[in-house]
Simulated assay, not measured.
Amino acid sequence: MAIHLHKGDLPDGLGLGPVVAIDSETLGLNPHRDRLCVVQLSAGDGDAHLVQFAPDTYDAPNLCRLLADPEVLKLYHFARFDVAVMEYYLGVRAEPVYCTKVASKLVRTFTDRHSLKDLVREFAGVELSKQQQSSDWGAETLSQAQMEYAASDVLYLHKVKAGLDAMLAREGRTAVAQACFDFLPARAWLDIAGWAETDIFAH
């Protein structure tokens, strides 16, 4: 495994294939208050690329081009948050997307365990450490432990997707999962625009 740290943007000419696993690290869970600090990506090849942002420096044309590329599937765990925070800070809407948390909730109805840690254990046989989850991602220099934690959040998503896809197909839920994925960018926009806690479909 190799971890590549980039300051401010992905390097020119980097290709990550047709399906890219993506995650983010922020200073909290409120995008209006808690800034985007790191975006991590993997092509599923065992390597991870981390883009670290300094405060108020979000001009990242290479990353934005990838997020907006209609030919690249963006693979997340809990896409609702990551898509929203990246749209808020980078000004780009990621499409198309796939969310392993949504897929898990649709097809792993025998359990209430849908965390990334649970899915990676089941489908990749790897036990993730979450010790750095609440660390200071706004620090000027990331520790080795932070970089390894960030990388681990994307390194196994392709395997998780493969396992979930097989279950969705088996249970006849692939189409409804795709409909949910198609709606996710709009759901993320609603969160940013102020409808995070309002069910607009309710009576």
Rank of each mutant, 00 (worst) to 15 (best):
Gly194Ala: 09
Trp189Pro: 01
Pro185Lys: 08
Val160Pro: 08
Val176Gly: 01
Ala196His: 07
Leu190Arg: 07
Ala177Pro: 06
Ala175His: 10
Thr198Phe: 13
Val160Thr: 06
Ser143Asn: 01
Val154Met: 09
Ala166Tyr: 03
Gln133Phe: 08
Ala162Tyr: 05
Leu190Tyr: 11
Lys161Glu: 10
Ser129Asp: 14
Gln146Glu: 08
Ser135Leu: 06
Ser129Val: 11
Ser134Asp: 13
Tyr156Met: 00
Leu184Phe: 04
His158Gly: 03
Gln146Ala: 08
Tyr149Ser: 02
Leu128Lys: 07
Val154Gln: 09
Trp189Ser: 04
Gly138Leu: 13
Ser135His: 11
Ala175Asn: 01
Leu164Pro: 08
Tyr156Ser: 00
Val126Gln: 14
Val154Glu: 04
Ala139Met: 04
His158Thr: 06
Ala150His: 08
Ser152Arg: 02
Pro185Val: 09
Arg170Asn: 09
Gly163Arg: 06
Val160Ile: 07
Thr141Ile: 12
Met167Glu: 12
Ser129Leu: 06
Val160Gly: 13
Ser134Thr: 12
Leu142Ser: 03
Thr141Arg: 15
Trp189Gly: 00
Ala196Ile: 00
Phe183Leu: 15
Gly172Ala: 09
Ser143Tyr: 01
Lys161Gly: 01
Thr141Gln: 15
Trp195Ala: 03
Ala186Arg: 10
Ser134Arg: 11
Asp165His: 10
Ala193Asp: 00
Gly172Val: 07
Ala150Ser: 15
Ala139Arg: 13
Leu155Thr: 01
Leu142Lys: 04
Lys161Arg: 15
Trp195Cys: 00
Leu142His: 04
Trp137Leu: 05
Val154Trp: 12
Ala124Gln: 09
Gly125Asn: 11
Ala162Asp: 05
Met147Ala: 00
Ala186Trp: 11
Leu164Phe: 14
Leu190Glu: 08
Gln131Asn: 07
Ala186Asn: 06
Gly138Lys: 02
Leu168Tyr: 04
Ala179Asn: 06
Gly194Asp: 07
Arg187Ser: 08
Thr174Ser: 14
Ser129Met: 02
Leu184Gly: 01
Tyr149His: 10
Leu164Arg: 01
Gln146Arg: 03
Glu171Cys: 03
Ala150Asp: 02
Gln132Ile: 03
Leu128Val: 06
Ala139Trp: 04
Gln178Asn: 08
Glu127Leu: 11
Leu164Cys: 14
Glu140Leu: 12
Gly163Thr: 01
Val126Asn: 10
Gln131Glu: 12
Ala179Gly: 12
Glu197Val: 03
Glu197Gln: 14
Leu128Asn: 12
Ala169Lys: 15
Gly125Phe: 07
Asp136Leu: 02
Gln131Cys: 02
Gly194Val: 00
Ala169Val: 02
Gly194Phe: 07
Thr174Trp: 10
Leu157Trp: 14
Gly125Pro: 10
Ala177Gly: 06
Glu197Phe: 10
Gln144Tyr: 08
Ala166Leu: 08
Lys130Ser: 08
Val176Ala: 06
Ala139Gln: 13
Phe183Cys: 04
Met167Thr: 10
Leu142Asp: 05
Gln132Pro: 00
Val160Trp: 14
Val126Cys: 12
Ala151Arg: 05
Leu168Ile: 01
Asp153Thr: 00
Asp191Lys: 09
